[in-house]
Design a protein around this nucleic acid. Sequence first.
DNA 1: ACAGTGACAAGTC
DNA 2: AGACTTGCCACTG
Length: 115
Amino acid sequence: MKNEISKAERIWQTVLVIPKGKVAAYGQIADLAGLPGRARYVGKAMGQAPQSLQVPWHRVLRSSGQLAFDAGSQHSRLQTKLLQEEGVVVLNHRVNLNVFGWQPDLGELLAKLSF
DNA sequence: ACAGTGACAAGTC
DNA sequence: AGACTTGCCACTG
């Protein structure tokens, strides 16, 4: 025990702030988590995130709006399903960021992330 | 310490 | 629009 809050935890915390019905890009999460340029690490950290945190990984996708997983894979289907259940329209393995893209509010970030 | 790896992103053709 | 190239840097063996 030594490092209090690892980078991965900051990422998880940030993802947890994504409101239901919205989606965010990996790079965006990395940026909000205070780790600009660490988009790749975000994805890796997601895989390590424990279930107990209930991280809404399905609300995280690529900057282009495409799902991060391979089309047809079990993961992508689950992600699509979860998103649609939240009201997010997923067409052709992608999401319209103009409509469902998350635009973080400074107030909420301060309240939940306390940066 | 070093090299390989990666749920990405932006640029080029 | 699709395929390829480069940059990024934390993590792992």
